[in-house]
Design a protein around this nucleic acid. Structure first.
Length: 419
DNA sequence: TCTGGGGTCCTAGGACCC
DNA sequence: TCTGGGGTCCTAGGACCC
């Protein structure tokens, strides 16, 4: 059996842990630059605030209903996530952390356990120790555990936040209840197509002929169908090093100057290099892109990306900045308004396994230098040591007007209790 | 005026090899 | 008129996830 442990309205719940007065009140969390709604408490959902809603369009509604608005505080959410995961991980030796707020557990050899009770204990313990409410779905396959989780979340009263699919009858009942577009792995395109074929529920989907599913949705769809039928097809996945690493941002205003963009691209490249070093990879390929503001068709639009094959694999910030800025110069055009840019690195080789080249190699002195930079920045806080190509004064110009303290990761921002 | 930021996997077709 | 049989690698595009 598999369990899917999923935190309810995760970012909103994190904010509430430290502001218990907000329990029962509408809470939303915004994306970077305070742009879109990326998390909503149940009360906020009930007000009809959709996922991804642009914040400026909903300001009136926020005020009218006294919605509590927070800027994204990823330092807090990441730390709360690892606390939840470490508690959930105590319930089985086999766990796959699927995202910041979800994990699959596999119960091998738990035949004599009452899994409903295990789920309830998990819910209680995570709730008591972290303050984060979770839902638990348990079923013979991963896809069915996802379905069970949805039921637990939808009917917290009746299920006690834990739902078990452990019979054919419950499986069929659950799949008949679930609209096809809500199935894990069936997105917008496929669900529109399925609906047009009068396939309306998850159950209908499992009744389509294998060959047809395969033709329409490739082996991915076929695996999903089998998993939903209760035939275990998807297994627990090992954590693997990332195959691409990116740093991209939407700017708080339009940028027009090459010099401004060069500073941003340099900072993005440095950030990619840091992430590469932390997983022990070097990249062989780099993509730099710049885009205009697609929401302003009145402005002249221009956007481009450029792929750079590096002469040698590297994770040195100095090298990546050099290549990235050279690439930026090639695609930059005068006279346009730039609203978004980014650096993507890909095509990795392990840093301890680099093939040397007769003609071009990375500067070996960068290796100890980058180690030292990482160490200093780790000790003294992010970005204490920067490259001269970066803006030395700029700390973080992102718009974050409603940022909560980093209660759990910064001693200066720890919660104060008045007694 | 103001609209996020990351990732993964699969397939078909072209270029190439022996 | 007749024209083999296997492979691999790479890329772009499309779909999906949180």
């Amino acid at each position: 059996m598999f369990a899917l442990v999923d935190c309810n309205n995760f970012y909103a719940s994190c904010e509430r842990v430290f502001r218990p007065g907000l329990t029962g009140k509408p809470v939303v969390v915004l994306s970077n630059n305070d742009g879109c709604v990326i998390a909503r408490s149940n009360e906020a959902k009930a007000l009809g605030i959709p996922m991804g809603a642009p914040a400026f369009k909903y300001e009136k509604l926020f005020r009218k209903h006294n919605v509590h608005v927070f800027s994204a505080n990823f330092a807090l959410y990441g730390d709360m996530s690892s606390r939840v995961m470490s508690i959930a991980g105590e319930f089985s030796p086999e766990m796959e952390i699927y995202s910041i707020d979800e994990a699959f557990l596999k119960f091998t050899g738990f035949e004599n356990f009452d899994l409903q009770a295990v789920g309830t204990r998990m819910h209680e313990r995570v709730g008591k120790w972290t303050g984060i409410p979770i839902s638990v779905g348990i079923a013979p396959t991963k896809a069915l555990a996802k379905v069970a989780n949805r039921i637990a979340k939808k009917f917290p009263g009746r299920t006690g936040n834990v739902y078990l699919i452990d019979s054919e009858e419950k499986r069929v009942k659950a799949l008949r209840w679930l609209p096809v577009e809500d199935v894990w792995g069936i997105g917008r395109q496929h669900s529109a197509r399925l609906r047009s074929m009068n396939i309306n529920t998850a159950f209908d989907f499992t009744r389509i002929d294998d060959k047809r599913v395969r033709r329409m949705m490739s082996v991915v769809g076929l695996r999903l169908k089998h998993d939903l039928q209760g035939i275990p097809t998807l297994g627990l996945e090992e954590v693997q090093p990332r195959k691409s690493i990116a740093t991209t941002r939407t700017f708080e205003r339009n940028y027009t100057l090459l010099s401004e963009l060069k500073e941003r691209i340099a900072t993005f490249a440095v950030s990619c290099a840091e992430k590469l070093r932390s997983q022990g990879s070097c990249c062989n390929t780099l993509i730099v892109f710049v885009y205009g503001n697609r929401h302003r068709p009145d402005l002249p639009q221009y956007g481009r990306n450029i792929v750079v094959k590096l002469p040698f694999p590297t994770n040195s910030g100095i090298e990546l900045v050099k290549f990235a800025n050279r690439a930026l110069e090639k695609i930059f055009r005068e006279g346009y308004y730039y609203k978004k840019a980014g650096v993507i690195t890909m095509d990795f080789t392990p840093e301890d396994n680099i093939q040397l080249n007769i003609f071009a190699n990375g500067n070996p002195r960068h290796i100890p230098l980058m180690k030292a930079v990482d160490r200093i920045n780790g000790l003294l806080g992010q970005q204490k040591v920067k490259l001269a190509a970066q803006d030395l004064k700029r700390v973080w110009k992102m718009k974050q007007e409603k940022l909560s303290p980093r209660y759990t990761t910064n001693i200066n921002e720890i919660i104060t209790v008045h007694t």
